[in-house]
Design a binder for these strands. Structure first.
Lengths: 208, 208, 208, 208
DNA sequence: CATGAATGAGGTTTCATTCAT
DNA sequence: TATGAATGAAACCTCATTCAT
């Protein structure tokens, strides 16, 4: 967890301002690209001055890091919600619900996912690792769910790792190909259809 | 098709040089990002001088366009190959073969796909349209294939448009998530597994 | 004597705070340079807030002036001590004692001398004059002492002005070349040796 | 020997431009101070544009290094000249001539000495070491000359190291206290008088 | 009072592009 | 034709100083 320099000792204010910075910057970055959005545009959009912005960050690149951190935390929260809400469900229901919650989480963070996908090339190795780790935990969760199901004889799926990855990709795609998907589906429709497609893939044994 | 300025009258030479420019630039852009790769680095990697490079392009942004053009043409070539090679196949075989050829095409152009994915945000509307159009033709092809199959009673799939899109996404993901997939699968393995998954999704009626 | 703005009416407090400001700032300035030490670092080192610091000074440049003033006053005090303590000594003894007291004064103010030497270029003409005047008085004192000695037949020295200047330089060097001298000599050793060297230069007639 | 980045492959041109940069920058830095001379002023004084200046340096701080390098080399040249011209002289003549050549060298480089004296605080340890090393070699030369003379019974001096240091300080002072010395002495007068003073200090045995 | 958030001018540096040679 | 020096706009970032709280 990299430390971002601040010139302010008021940590509540810093947190508040950084939240604004993350939300507004992400929106601009998605629109114009990171390198083509200059600090002036950022500070204008934030109703700050350039100097003011630099009270809460050490450099423009730090914003990248803050977005990354924000996203990781939100992703972890999504993951926690998934585990909490699927505890009492049977395996198939747990899978459906997990996908639903996951896609909802992606939808809420779509700007972040969209942006991070574009700038991943600019991230430093450590930062990249953070991003992958957080994602990896969810992939591993789905993988385990599938493998357990296979073992229990409930699912029939040849490549559970790839299928888990495909589930995550369904989310990735929802964030990154809005221009195509949003014209055709609401989140609910997309969720239902992709869920069905995935359940097809794993050939649920109970009669499907 | 935007015209890229050249200072050279020898159009064969221009084409040859531009091909090099596209291949080498894409490699660098994927590694460092478009905005962080400067013209000096490009010309060095091309064993040209800066002035020399500007004989074949009008501006740095033109390289973007050349890459886009190169990719579109290659994609059209892939598409042409798909149609040529699937003419005499039955519908299910045509689908398998189409996916195979498509993924092979993506694999060959993976740097381009990777790069275009990162800079799509920087493209001008016209350029974006070019990219989407080319992609759209392949999506439409798969969609038609699926719908025909449904009509003929061979496939059972609820959302053929989304499924066609998912097929393209299988390619997209192969190009953009190399770090995850390449560690686990060869192109052949990936092709086989994603093909099987897709065929599951469309519940081919002939018993598979 | 330039007036430094203050926002506090309590002149005793102002004097106390300014003394701290001078001592602490000089230390920082010697370490990092005046222009590379920012007001935040100063106020931190002083356990003040930036606003607090500005209650006792009108601008950062004022600190320069305060240091200058502090140094001039201390130098005058040294000079006064020299005259007081050499009143009853014979000419040669007076010279020895003057050098000793002078070098001791330099040693106590070494940070200030060191710093002023580095920033002399940034001083305004008026401030420069203050510094030179104070130094000039001591040079003149040594010059007179030497000239009197020559007239009285006690000293033989061709260039009393230059010799007086050389004496001051012995102090200057002690402050400004610490890295060389401190490794080799204590103040006492340095004083003794330079005194002997100077006495050699002026060929004291009484046989020493 | 730190490498200074250049954007030009023409090393003769680079050397020529850097020489101009060193000479002009030093003059400005001595007048206004390093941190208060901005790159615009430098490039104006050099009849270059800001961008043009950066073809030959990597950063403003590199100019510091170039000045340092220039000075070290010139100092080495002075040192070489001293050894060459004193080979056939007796010890006392060698000392006189060495001092003369050394002071002449300082006079030619007075801006550089003056400047380096002011910014020594900004130098990185490695750069500082370069400066000290070059100076140290000359100090050591004088020290050896004195010690040999003592051993041979020609000189009588209690602290040869300090005396050698004092000789160098005579040069240092000539560069750094121009405002005082230039009003009173020409280089020749200064040389003669300081030489005499130094010879007094070492009590040359042959009749002085 | 005392605080420190805010200001915004001005600093250094980069880089796509031109054009004299 | 081919070169790379030169341009200068624009980027990121710092910091002395002010002033609402």
């Amino acid at each position: 967890m990299k430390k971002v320099r601040t010139r302010s000792p008021d940590s509540a204010l810093v947190a508040k301002r950084r939240r604004e910075i993350v939300l507004v910057s992400t929106r601009l970055f998605v629109k114009k690209g990171y390198d083509r959005t200059n600090v002036r545009e950022l500070s204008d959009a934030l109703s700050m001055t350039k100097g003011g912005l630099y009270h809460y960050i050490g450099s423009k690149d730090d914003i990248l890091y803050l977005i990354l951190d924000f996203t990781s935390k939100a992703q972890e929260a999504t993951f926690a919600r998934i585990r909490r809400r699927t505890k009492k469900l049977n395996r198939q229901e747990a899978l459906r619900e997990s996908i639903r919650i996951y896609l909802q989480g992606v939808d809420e963070l779509q700007d972040m996912y969209n942006f991070l996908n574009h700038v991943i090339v600019n991230l430093k190795p450590q930062q990249r690792k953070t991003l992958f780790a957080s994602e990896g935990r969810i992939t591993a969760y789905f993988e385990t769910l599938l493998k357990d199901g296979i073992e229990a004889g409930e699912f029939k799926v040849d490549a559970p790792t790839l299928t888990a990855h495909n589930i995550l990709m369904a989310g990735n795609v929802w964030a990154n190909r809005r221009w195509f998907l949003r014209k055709r589906y609401t989140l609910e429709e997309y969720t239902v259809r992709q869920t069905e497609a995935i359940l097809q893939m794993i050939r649920c044994v109970d009669g499907s």
